[in-house]
């Protein structure tokens, strides 16, 4: 086995364009690359024409690599900081608590990877063997993959445009030796852009069970979450349900409850009713969740009797029902 220390070296060769893509660029990797109206006179015309076209030849390889994974779940939200990674972490801990389940957690947030911090394995590195990249194992039955493991330095910035991020995501799907998994949980960055389009395209042949949408109660967050739901519908991604995070805070001193992120428009539940999505539950804001995520410990193990733990486990139960696994 060889240790991979530097993220730059292991990526597939990236093509270089002679100038930034013009407006109305059909996309260097699209079928019409080099043939569009805006391609005439573009300095990239030849580069784009020479790139491989047609259906992605890697799709069958991805399908083969992921063939032994039963359920693939995306964790999505249009908004940042609502708890996608926290919830992915909770799901990972809760599912892997069952020793008979094999769980994988994949971090698609290339520019701001959080999963390794929350699972307490930031300093791990990826190893390569003849079966591909070996993911980092947090426990015997919990495997994770993130760009964080490849950074030369914990604080290194990944200043990549979309095409480079897509290449890495493909690598995660095609070349990581996931082996057999009951669940592959896919944590995503906020927004509806390259990472989201790519993961959906790459998994077209291997089927995603669906997406879990995470939101917070206030309308500014719901506004972005609507966009994500709209994206799922356009892209044909099944929505397994929505969970509302950070709803309500109970003061540890006086036990009085405050609505910090006030649901002036009815919160996640009203959104679910409006758009016909299953509401899986709401999880209260508990400072101890954040603290556990800092240290990489399982909140569910540390505080099993807290209202937040109960709420999280209920959501996970409903989610397992939604993917038809009891």
């Amino acid at each position: 086995m060889t240790e991979i220390a530097n993220g730059q070296q292991i990526l597939p060769p990236d093509y270089t364009l002679k100038e930034p893509e013009p407006e109305h660029c059909p996309g260097p990797e699209s079928e019409n690359a080099g043939k569009g109206d805006s391609c005439q006179g573009c300095a990239n015309k030849e580069v784009c024409e020479s790139l491989p076209k047609g259906p992605d030849p890697d799709l069958p390889l991805i399908k083969e690599n992921l063939a032994n994974i039963k359920h693939k779940i995306l964790i999505l939200s249009g908004k940042g900081g609502v708890g996608k990674s926290t919830f992915t972490t909770m799901l990972s801990w809760a599912l892997s608590a069952d020793e008979d389940l094999q769980v994988g957690a994949m971090d698609l947030d290339i520019c701001g990877p959080s999963l390794p911090h929350m699972l307490g394995c930031v300093r791990e590195t990826i190893h390569e063997s003849n079966t591909g990249w070996t993911p980092v194992y947090v426990t015997d039955n919990l495997a994770t993959m993130s760009i964080q493991y490849m950074l030369p330095d914990t604080d290194s910035a990944i200043i990549w445009r979309g095409s480079k991020k897509n290449a890495l995501i493909k690598k995660f799907l095609k070349d990581v030796d996931w082996d057999y998994l009951d669940y592959l949980l896919i944590d995503t960055p906020p927004g509806t852009s390259d990472e989201h389009i790519s993961i959906n395209n790459y998994l077209k042949e291997s089927q995603i069970d669906g997406a879990l949408i995470v939101t917070t109660p206030q309308e500014v967050a719901l506004l972005d979450v609507r966009k994500e739901i709209n994206f799922c519908r356009k892209a044909g991604i099944n929505i397994l349900g929505l969970v509302e995070n950070m709803s309500g805070f109970v003061c540890p001193n006086c036990k009085g409850e405050s609505k910090i992120f006030k649901a002036t428009t009815g919160g996640g539940k009203a959104l679910c009713n409006e758009l016909g999505i299953d509401f899986l539950g709401s999880v209260p804001l508990d400072p101890r969740i954040g603290r556990c995520c800092e240290t990489g410990e399982s909140f569910l193990d540390e505080f099993p009797d807290s209202p937040a733990s109960t709420a999280i486990l209920e959501v996970i139960e409903s989610l397992r029902d939604a993917v038809g696994d009891v």
Partner: peptide, 18 residues
């Protein structure tokens, strides 16, 4: 519509910012 999503890859986003 406020619920509409903008599903754009990088080059389109760059053009918009320009």
């Amino acid at each position: 519509d406020r619920g509409n999503s903008v599903v754009w890859r990088g080059p389109k986003k760059s053009a918009m910012i320009k």
